[in-house]
């Protein structure tokens, strides 16, 4: 990897923009195209690009595998617990209208939370799958 100067510089310039774009897609999904799934994939792709250019070990220092593995489950748990909270507040499972005083605000909050959950799980799964494949090739 010592020789790929252009690749490394371009990757360094692009990765922050990719991650920023991922966050934009995540939080702008209510208004434009996008949402948790696409954002998670873009966010994961940023890390995968880093791992491709700088090596899997260095990428492992940035995104620790144990933390990423916890995030795989955390996103899904966040999604499911939004449903449990709406159950406890007297609504149906995943009925967000009861989450706030105003049903429209409740819907907004619920959709925001489950999109974040989707994004976390998708990004973590993409990173995990790539790392698992890549580290198997080395051993």
């Amino acid at each position: 990897m010592r020789h790929h100067f252009i690749l490394r510089i371009v990757a360094k310039l692009l990765i922050p923009l990719i991650l920023l774009f991922g966050l934009y897609v995540q939080f702008h999904g209510d208004f434009g195209p996008g949402g948790g799934f696409q954002a998670g994939v873009i966010f994961g792709a940023g890390f995968i690009l880093y791992a491709l250019v700088f090596g899997v070990e260095k990428a492992g220092n940035v995104a620790r595998l144990t933390i990423v593995r916890v995030m795989v489950a955390a996103g899904l748990l966040l999604y499911g617990s939004v449903g449990v909270v709406s159950l406890l507040l007297g609504g149906n499972y995943l009925d967000y209208s009861v989450l706030a005083d105003d049903p429209v605000h409740g819907q907004h909050l619920g959709i925001f939370l489950i999109e974040v959950g989707v994004g976390i799980t998708v990004a973590a799964v993409m990173i995990t799958i790539f790392f698992t494949f890549a580290s198997r090739g080395r051993s």
Binding site: D30, G35, V104, Q107, H108, G110, I111, E115
Partner: peptide, 17 residues
């Protein structure tokens, strides 16, 4: 009902949660 302009998001996240 959801106050969200993108119908795709409101269907995916709320009606088809």
């Amino acid at each position: 009902e959801t106050g969200i302009p993108n119908v795709v998001t409101s269907v995916l996240a709320s009606y088809r949660g």
